[in-house]
Computed example of a mutant assay.
Amino acid sequence: MNIKELTTPCFLLDLDTMEKNIERFQRIANENNTQLWPMLKTHKSTEITRMQMEAGAAGVLTGTLDEAEAVVEKAGVKRVMLAYPVLGVANIKRVIELNKKAEVYIALDGIEGAREVSALLGEEEINYLIIFDSGLGRFGVSPEAAPSLVREIEELANLKFAGICTHTGQVYGVSGKEEVPGVIKAEVEATQRIVKNLEEAGFKPEIVATGTTPTFFEAVKSDLINASRPGNYVFFDAIQIALGAATVEECSLTVMATILSKPKSDLFILDCGSKCLGLDKGAHGTSLTEGFGMVKGHPELLMAGLSEEVAKVKITGKTDLKVGDRVEIIPNHSCSAANMTSYLTGHRGGEVERFIEVDIRGNSNKPKMI
């Protein structure tokens, strides 16, 4: 089957391109003696997780407990980091059960959460990473406050200090790609400060983890950083292009849509809307993208507006497209777009090879009734 035979809208995944992205990031990590722990929230797929692990990933980073449980049970992953603190009795019990099946690293940035986890551990021991703030201003303690927090946690039972982690998501809020090096500088400098402070206090972090896709290429060169946790690199998207982290050719995920109407001389209507592409322009307010996606190969088209099921596309220059033609759209944010579908259509050169399930979206695991 050729992709031209597919109904629209549909989510296309260029397998050759994705495989090159996975191989490239793993190779760069290996060359810099850095472990790669891919963030799974981008694709939420156990099959793609297996591909990343087979390429050489040391473990995975997950945004949800569903992701963590699914990749351990379905993809055979043995080492899992949780990106955010997990609190609440029901949630912590799930983590404790998962820790019996895999090497789990929880993330902490306060003593309250640590106490709650410790109280439920019983005889179990679990690894923890201290989240530190490298400029995003979301989770995390300052590099200066980290030693006192570790001292407090070390008084609790069965919590084992394993290292530190940070996410430099502020890179997605820069006003131009020329500002990206400054974010990387802040990432590395904050890492240097926290490692120095912890070592002076007698704590040696085994894992020093940072990571976003745009900062990966330079931050991975740091002698201190030994674990990198990018996620978006498997697909890339219009935001990554704007930040200089990717080219159009490196974007493996697109949404294929049909031109349904041309109600005005300068307007097309497509059969894909916010329920395919999302209204997302980045979690941290980037102004670098124009419109709601990039029409591949057609710079004369601007994705001007999205309803739930259709898109308004402004024609800004001469085009040879007409009603009935199909176009491929690179999403602004591929992580959000991929979460809109249950499967991706994997193809090579336009020939469909297989369908890849997006099988660990939110609330994938229903609770068991007792």
Rank of each mutant, 00 (worst) to 15 (best):
L243Y: 10
A227S: 13
S228D: 13
I225W: 02
S222T: 00
D237S: 15
N232W: 10
V234P: 02
A227E: 12
F236S: 03
E218G: 03
F235L: 12
N226I: 00
Y233H: 15
V234H: 06
Y233V: 09
A238C: 14
Q240T: 14
Q240V: 10
A227Y: 13
D237G: 12
T213D: 04
I241W: 07
A242D: 09
P214V: 05
S228N: 13
I241P: 07
F236V: 07
T215I: 02
I225Y: 03
K221D: 00
K221A: 00
A242T: 09
P214F: 01
D223L: 09
I241N: 05
A227W: 11
L224P: 01
D237W: 13
F235K: 05
G231H: 08
S222N: 08
E218S: 06
G231F: 07
A219D: 05
V220L: 02
F216K: 00
S222M: 06
F235D: 05
A219S: 15
N226T: 00
Y233P: 06
T213Y: 00
N232V: 10
I239L: 15
E218Q: 11
Y233F: 15
S228G: 10
V234K: 05
T215R: 04
D223F: 09
V220D: 03
E218T: 09
F236G: 00
F216H: 05
N226V: 04
T213I: 02
P214G: 03
A227R: 14
I225N: 01
L224D: 06
I225T: 02
V220E: 00
K221L: 01
R229V: 12
N226G: 01
Q240K: 14
A242Y: 12
E218P: 00
K221Y: 06
L224E: 03
F236T: 04
D237H: 14
K221V: 03
L224Q: 07
V234I: 13
P214N: 04
F216M: 02
E218W: 01
I241L: 09
Y233L: 13
Q240L: 15
N226H: 02
K221H: 06
G231C: 11
Q240S: 15
I239V: 14
A219G: 10
I241S: 02
I239C: 07
I225D: 06
G231K: 04
F217W: 08
R229I: 12
D223Q: 13
V234N: 04
Q240Y: 14
L224M: 09
P230S: 10
K221C: 08
N232M: 12
F216S: 01
I241Y: 06
L243Q: 10
D223V: 09
L243D: 01
E218D: 15
I239F: 10
D237P: 15
F236M: 15
R229Y: 13
F216G: 03
I241V: 13
R229S: 14
